[in-house]
Design a binder for these strands. Sequence first.
DNA 1: ACACTAACAGAATGGCTGTTCCTTTTGTAG
DNA 2: CTACAAAAGGAACAGCCATTCTGTTAGTGT
Lengths: 185, 185
Amino acid sequence: MPRLTDARKELRRTQIAEAAVRCFGRNGLERTSIADITAESGLSAGSIYAHYRNKADLVRAAAREVLARRADVLGEYAAGDAPPGPDELLSRLIAAIDPAEARVGVQTWGEATTDPAIRDIVVDMTDRMRAMLHDCVMAWLVKVEHHEPAEARERATPIAHRVMALYQAELLYTALRSPTEETAS
Amino acid sequence: MPRLTDARKELRRTQIAEAAVRCFGRNGLERTSIADITAESGLSAGSIYAHYRNKADLVRAAAREVLARRADVLGEYAAGDAPPGPDELLSRLIAAIDPAEARVGVQTWGEATTDPAIRDIVVDMTDRMRAMLHDCVMAWLVKVEHHEPAEARERATPIAHRVMALYQAELLYTALRSPTEETAS
DNA sequence: ACACTAACAGAATGGCTGTTCCTTTTGTAG
DNA sequence: CTACAAAAGGAACAGCCATTCTGTTAGTGT
């Protein structure tokens, strides 16, 4: 084959990454072998190495994917014109948690303590998500609680911090609650 | 040597476990080889296997040790006759966090998503710690806020839950903040 | 439609690592 | 103090797994 068109290439990359995420959720980052991923994705080792430099690179991509998907959910809320308050916001975030992705997310935290590249991804995604929470809470303070924008910005910071913390804790609980068995119909 | 006296045997076990914890904090649970642990502990492979059935067994012991040490800190507070309020309690817990142990703790979470044995340890320790927090908050409600014991017991539950969540989030931040370098003099 | 070249399959490899085995050492009981 | 047996040392082993390599296939630009 000649060089694949960019769309196709990206498609293959996500196909591999998604298979990897499924494997990671099932067996963990390190206990997942390339062979597992080839089996899950239906591709071969050679093919995987044509798209990712090595396993670490693939893990990074998987981490980015999982974390990004979680962050995206937030974008919608902040933009709406009836922003939910902190409690409601937290409830919705928690309701949107997917157990499999929660597991990979928590595994990612563990890996981040050791691997600087993963650490940067996690920190970056966390900061970004907290910023979105901040926007969301500020919008609520202004539109619903009728605070001054300047004051709202200040007040929103610790609230966003707390919501983030409670959300992460819930993510951990979800990850621990569903050890390895779920056959969601 | 004949069978070591129980005290000596336990000493060796903790010597190995502590070396393992140091290695885990530095390189992660899976990236730490038995060779690393022999180097860190000054013992040999044969010796390690005389005290632990296998590596998984050693990881379990290390997890227990780290989590137990964190839980122990709490015991003191609950027993004192001037129990700290939730905010003060959280501050003290956070102040007592050791970065190296935080890293191993977070790694343990990641492992728990995959390994049922580790999962049980983490869940057990978390429950135990939350129960201690509950006792502590209840003592505060009764002794300082002058609530009725029955009412205090009820009110303490969600508060303990929140303190636990915020503590765990802080643990995560600490683990991420200190990637691998600290040469505390 | 053709040719070119990168994607793909899958076997081969080389290194690493958990575990075991055998020897030597040494703590303990009598 | 002696003898015994378990513990410590460390080399050897076996299996796994990331990565590479070789040939084959099939998209893509012309």
